[in-house]
Write a protein that binds this DNA or RNA. Structure first.
Lengths: 373, 373
DNA sequence: CTTTCTTATTGAATCGTTTGAAAGATCATG
DNA sequence: CATGATCTTTCAAACGATTCAATAAGAAAG
């Protein structure tokens, strides 16, 4: 379309050579000035000014490919998300982005949609783009040892966020699930609940057993009985709202078997939403007739009706810690970093909202009975 | 660390030259074979096989920078998200990713965090990475004409998703807001509601007036009265959950002034969640005492308690249509594409769930009065 | 007047890949 | 046996930037 006065077709963008020609200096000088390289100290102030002016006028933008090729650096960090529609991932992602913002790195985000095939395809692409570090945000861990050892081979500093590998050399950053489970049950217990139903996480998920360990630890400490009829387990399909649906149907089933529990501890917030729905369908209101406690503290937990009490994972912080560790490893220059394979366990935090409340055995049940008479 | 048998430090990855040396053929041949270029037809089958074997053995991966530099193509589409934590954006993003998956393009996703400064910084970076197309997912439009004309200058095919520019040459893909507004009010009206409160979108947002136009059109058709006391407006802060908070407080205020409305039409789902909360705090239950209708159909709308009736935007489809248009423009090769500046308006769909219901003036109000006596 | 130092700028090689042109074979055709 | 035609492979020049080593001019020092 438009032809510039130098006769060049404007579709080919302005290059360093263009600026050189236009300003009368060599490409070397232009590069040195625009990058404020150390030797630019010796470039005459007038020259600098002139070059900058010309560069601006021609709207010069250095080409990332030429630059990265020469410098052998991409200035990007790969971020592999397992499922970007999971609000859990979203917040971690925000933490990552915010921390990366003040650095020279650009996040290269891809979403595996919970599919291994995509995971591998995107991984290959990230490697072709020579990402200097890799953050894997795994809400729901389907990758196994094999895939992981593959990650290891690439000699790209890698950190796993939100999930832990049982073994292996990969570092990870996640919440202390054991402690979270402990806190959760402690909360319900402290409100007076003794008949508690549980929806455990899926068996395949390593984190879910850690969480359950915490629950068991507290139960043992106070001698709480946990009848089998009130302990159920998610299957762990990777579909989007499956934990809501499963939470709902599992709760429904439990209610039909023996509705005598006064509190329910769900594996995560979505499961808890499902449980609340089932309870309501059954005619029981939350928290008056049954308390419900979630896990994660996704953004909508506070907006829910009733707002959901939950155990918060410090998701943004997890993201920024992951970035910190990656940056560290990069600076080590590929040497065996000191903290490699380390696991950062962050403390969870109990957030009490409306969905849990103290049990009022006398007053409430009495009031009911009277009402019925 | 590990030293390969060819004596090279394994930190420098295998390059085309490595494969050439190892296989005994020239780099040209390697490139031709691995890319299955047209001339590879003439390469002996045995050679091909051998080269492929060696490439695999050395775990050769073509360097994206070298390649893109030479081919002058990046094979990436920039995706600028205004706020990735907004579930509205998330779904559009999924649509984009899914459509891009079957193509040769990789999405390069960045999140502007609703800040103009970030928007511009990331835009510059995307341009340095020579994205071949740009999709801007704008849930909440803060960019003005100036920034937009800047977009135009770069000669990168660009499509705006989820928002419309009042003017300007940029194409966009979005829901038919006018029709959505019409459908929304029609729904409430058909349920028998005549006293309806409205929470309009922020004034700065062009889309929100389109939506309001639709509301007014229906109101005019049926002669509905819309007293000023029941029409309020969001201010449009760009903070994360602000529309929930605003929805809540605005509803609260209306309830205190005159609680006589039997239905409420919210600008979007989050606002609706806030309204439900305010109504409940005021002692009114949804939908029995007041119906609430949202807009968007974010993923959590179905999980909410009560599940939210809303006007759905086909977000995934919006994403994939945007991709289709970008791909088209790219194929046109930078020529003035035929559909440039075109606006695709997609039909909204009313989703009835639990938060809206028919009005029962006699039965219900009567029942109350009797109860009180 | 030569030597050394500082200031100011540039030449040329390089990163890893692709690709049009060309070169060497092999083989049939007139 | 020259002349193409058909295979098979390679040469060498890009792409756009960075950077080391080199050049050149002037000033200061001996």
């Amino acid at each position: 379309m438009a032809i510039r006065k130098d006769g060049q077709n404007s579709f080919s963008r302005t290059t360093l050579a263009d600026v050189a020609r236009e300003s009368g200096f060599s490409p070397s000088t232009i590069s040195i000035v625009l990058n404020e390289a150390p030797i630019s100290r010796y470039v005459a102030a007038k020259t600098k000014e002139h070059i900058r002016e010309v560069a601006k006028r021609l709207d010069y933008r250095p080409d990332a490919f030429g630059r990265s090729l020469r410098k052998r650096r991409s200035h990007t960090i790969g971020v592999m998300i397992f499922d970007i529609s999971d609000p859990f991932c979203t917040l971690i992602l925000q933490g990552i982005e915010k921390s990366l913002h003040s650095t020279e790195f650009l996040p290269f985000i891809v979403d595996a949609h919970n599919q291994r095939e995509q995971f591998e395809r995107y991984l290959a692409m990230l490697l072709e783009y020579r990402v200097e570090g890799l953050i894997v945000v795994a809400n729901w861990l389907f990758i196994d040892i094999e895939t992981l050892s593959e990650l290891e081979r690439h000699r790209v500093p890698t950190v796993l966020v939100g999930s832990e590998m049982r073994s292996g050399p990969l570092g990870s950053v996640l919440v202390n699930n054991e402690q979270g489970g402990y806190l959760a049950l402690q909360h319900l217990h402290s409100l007076g609940h003794r008949k508690i139903a549980f929806i455990r996480g899926p068996r395949q998920l390593w984190d879910s057993s850690r969480r359950w360990d915490g629950v068991l630890r507290f139960a043992a400490e106070v001698g709480l009985k946990m009848p089998k009829k009130w302990v159920v387990e998610l299957t762990g399909s990777s579909e989007s709202n499956s934990s809501f649906d499963e939470g709902r149907s599992l709760t429904s089933t439990m209610l039909q078997n023996d509705a005598g529990f006064t509190a329910l501890l769900a594996f995560d917030d979505l499961t808890a939403f499902g449980a609340v729905r089932a309870l309501r369908d059954f005619g029981r209101s939350v928290p008056e007739d049954c308390s419900v406690l979630g896990f994660d503290d996704v953004p909508h937990a506070a907006l829910f009706n009733p707002s959901l009490s939950t155990v918060r994972q410090p998701m943004e912080r997890m993201g920024s810690i992951a970035v910190g560790r990656i940056l560290n490893e990069i600076q080590q220059g590929g040497e065996v970093a000191p903290g490699k394979g380390r696991v950062d366990l962050l403390p969870p935090e109990l957030v009490q909202r409306e969905s849990t409340g103290a049990i009022h055995p006398t007053s409430k049940i009495l009031a009911r009975k009277i009402g019925k008479i």
